[in-house]
Design a protein around this nucleic acid. Structure first.
Lengths: 193, 193
DNA sequence: ACGACCATGTAAAACGTTACATGATTTA
DNA sequence: TAAATCATGTAACGTTTTACATGGTCGT
């Protein structure tokens, strides 16, 4: 497997944290990891086949207690080794394509008020995400008896929280600068510089 | 042109700020906009052809004072209108694929110390970028006589500064949590929570 | 049995990068 | 004039999404 086959490594990694079926991987991505990683079905199932062919994962005997069958997979020892090698390599930085920044950069050509609308939506979305993250952080058991993964997961969560706070603060600054509608700008005034 | 043809709109927008050749677009992206937008040559030149065919941009009579010829383009009035329409639409959020977060999330399977290395590099890179951004912000003329674009460009720059500060702070927190090597962690200790 | 959704999968198209080809102009 | 680099372009390839196909299972 080539080093830059990120999809396969991402899936291999997810299976390492917990055996899952293709469907469960999709669900898990959408529910949990969506904030820093996504895969579509068109990627997941072919990747599972390739990983199986390379003996990096293997189908698991499913309990199947009268339930619907979902073929789960788990990494082989070779898969775990391969994962560790990949984790040791410096992460690839994805080329940035920030649509909001691009539109703001071209703000002079935008219709009056359009940018403010974009910023307001962007801010609201991040506020909702931040809220969910804060609740999630509070819900984590205080004792250290959690899984071995917990420490790392909390660092990712912390990243999500801090970055979103920075985005939200910046949105406030932008709205003040661009002169948002009075009802809105009053709430944000204290964040201006 | 379909709404989601971001490459073409990005190039149309860049030409709106200033007439440029394909080569200059590439240069400009790499030097200036690289922090939130990128295009490769394999995208730029075909996009210029398509935009020309659609009469959204037009070749410009180049001064050509004994210099090397570079065919520059500038948007047509229709192009400017099209750009304004696109700017009014809510920006597409690109699906996140944060390689560093993914590797941190799978940290349990990584070889000892590998993640700390990744974080250290990541932090250093962001520190360098932040430094460049701060210098750029200071170099901007204090009087308002700048171009009409300046206000928007400064907001983008402010975003870059704030987000990088958040990343750097988070890196310090991670290094403290993961127990970096003593020489390094001492420097970061004051950021811990 | 019927509709709804679960679960897996695939083909086609869109998107993007890489690596190279080509020729022109500048510089030493 | 040779080397370097400027400037435009394209073909090949890999990746990713989209949209659909297929058939199973569940609730009623």
């Amino acid at each position: 497997m080539s080093d830059s086959n990120t999809t396969q490594y991402a899936i291999l990694g997810m299976l390492a944290t917990m055996p899952m079926s293709g469907y469960e991987i999709g669900k898990h991505l959408r529910n949990t990891l969506d904030f820093f990683w996504t895969e579509s079905n068109g990627q997941i199932y072919p990747a599972l086949k390739r990983l199986t062919a390379q003996r990096l994962i293997a189908p698991v005997a499913t309990p199947n207690a009268g339930k619907r069958v979902r073929q789960q997979y788990t990494p082989t020892p070779a898969g775990i080794r391969k994962l560790a090698e990949w984790l040791a390599e410096p992460p690839r930085i994805q080329p940035p394509r920030n649509g909001l920044m691009l539109k703001l950069f071209l703000g002079r050509f935008a219709p009056e008020g359009a940018l403010v609308q974009h910023i307001v939506s962007f801010k609201r979305r991040h506020e909702q995400t931040l809220d969910a993250f804060m609740k999630l952080r509070e819900s984590v058991p205080k004792d250290d008896a959690g899984s071995a993964d917990l420490k790392y997961w909390m660092l990712c969560l912390e990243h999500g929280i801090r970055l979103r706070r920075a985005e939200i603060d910046w949105c406030g600054y932008v709205l003040d600068t661009l002169g948002a509608s009075p009802s809105r700008s009053r709430r944000n005034r204290k964040r201006s510089e």
